[in-house]
Every structure is written in structure tokens, then in C-alpha cells.
Simulated assay, not measured.
Amino acid sequence: MTRPASLIPVPALSDVAEYAYAATVVPSTRLVFTAGACPLDADGATVAPGDHAAQARQVMANLETALAAAGARLTDVVKTTVYVASARQEDLVTVWEVVRDHFGDHEPPSTLLGVAVLGYTDQLVEVEAVAAVGHDG
């Protein structure tokens, strides 16, 4: 089977980034677009107020659950956007390390942003993703 997506590292660009710079998706592949995964527990409460890393772990668990409901996995993700409610670069790095570790060797292109505020009380982290699933997925 042809892989539904390919991640593209770009040797001409810096290797400091811990992700591929681009991704391609085979036409007719089923795309999955997630809403922003939030650091909410099953009752809708924001977990770990004030703790960027703990919220990022909850966000990634929720993202995996949402992807699974759509028949996808983290290894199918071809693009993420990571939002961090902070003006401190250290907080963005803390969140990024959690997100990166959840993806392991799979390094989809990603955008990491510091924002002023997110939608839920005490929310510090949100991650949205696009995944490409093959015909058998």
C-alpha cells in the first residue's frame, strides 16, 4: 500500500527544528481535522491549573482519543498547531517537549505559538492536528 502521507525534512534548512518542514498527502487519502485538544478531564474541568507540562500531557491524551475516534493515530498526523497561553519562551519550550515526546520518532510539521488567552478558565495549552489516513485506516 502507498503511504498516505510523507514527512519531508529539508536539509537546506536548519536541523534545530525537531520536526519535518513539510508534508505531502496522497490524493484521495482520508484527512482528519481535529478541533483543538484542550486540557479537560472527562467531567470538563481544566486539569493542573498553572502547570504547562501537566496540561500538555492531558492535551496529548485527549488528542490521541479524538484521533482514535476518527480511526487515526498520532503517527498519521501530518500537521499540528500548538497554542500556549504565555509570553514566556520557556513555557513554550516546556509544552513543546511534551508534545514532541508524545510523537516520538514521528515528527510532523508544527507551529508553536504563544497566545494571550485560551478558551477555558485556567487553560494554558491547546493542540490541533491534521492527520492523513490510508484507505485501510
Rank of each mutant, 00 (worst) to 15 (best):
A72W: 00
T81D: 06
T2F: 06
S14Y: 07
A42R: 14
N62R: 13
R88V: 12
D101Q: 11
H102N: 13
S14N: 10
Q58P: 06
A23Q: 12
Q55V: 00
D76T: 04
P27E: 06
A42H: 13
R30Q: 13
F103I: 06
H135D: 12
W96E: 12
D136C: 07
D41S: 04
L13A: 08
Q58S: 10
T29H: 01
D122K: 04
H52N: 05
S86A: 05
V125G: 04
H52W: 03
A66W: 00
Q58F: 02
A68E: 10
G137D: 13
N62M: 12
L40Q: 03
E90M: 11
E107T: 14
G114E: 01
M1T: 14
P11Y: 05
A69C: 12
Y19A: 15
L112Y: 03
I8T: 15
A12F: 02
G137F: 06
R3P: 13
V77G: 03
A116R: 01
D101H: 06
L40V: 04
G114S: 04
L63G: 09
D91S: 15
G119C: 07
A85D: 02
A116F: 03
G137E: 11
G119T: 08
A129I: 02
A69V: 11
L67G: 00
P109A: 08
V95Y: 02
L112S: 03
D105W: 10
T65R: 14
S86F: 01
V95H: 03
A37D: 11
H106W: 03
A131R: 01
E128N: 14
T75L: 10
L40I: 03
A20F: 02
L13Q: 08
L74F: 05
A56D: 10
Y19H: 15
V99A: 04
F103V: 09
E18T: 13
D76K: 04
G44D: 09
V98H: 05
Y83F: 13
T80S: 10
D105F: 05
T80P: 02
P108I: 00
A54F: 07
V82Y: 01
E128P: 12
E126H: 05
A45G: 12
A85T: 01
T65F: 08
Q55M: 00
P109C: 06
D136G: 08
A85V: 00
S14R: 07
M60N: 07
P9E: 14
S110I: 15
M60L: 13
V133P: 05
G119W: 00
H52F: 02
A35E: 10
T34D: 07
L40D: 06
H106C: 04
K79I: 12
W96K: 14
T2S: 12
P9Y: 11
V10H: 12
L118C: 03
L113I: 05
P11G: 09
L31M: 10
R30A: 07
P9W: 13
V59W: 01
A35K: 12
K79P: 12
A48Q: 09
Y21D: 09
G104D: 11
P49A: 10
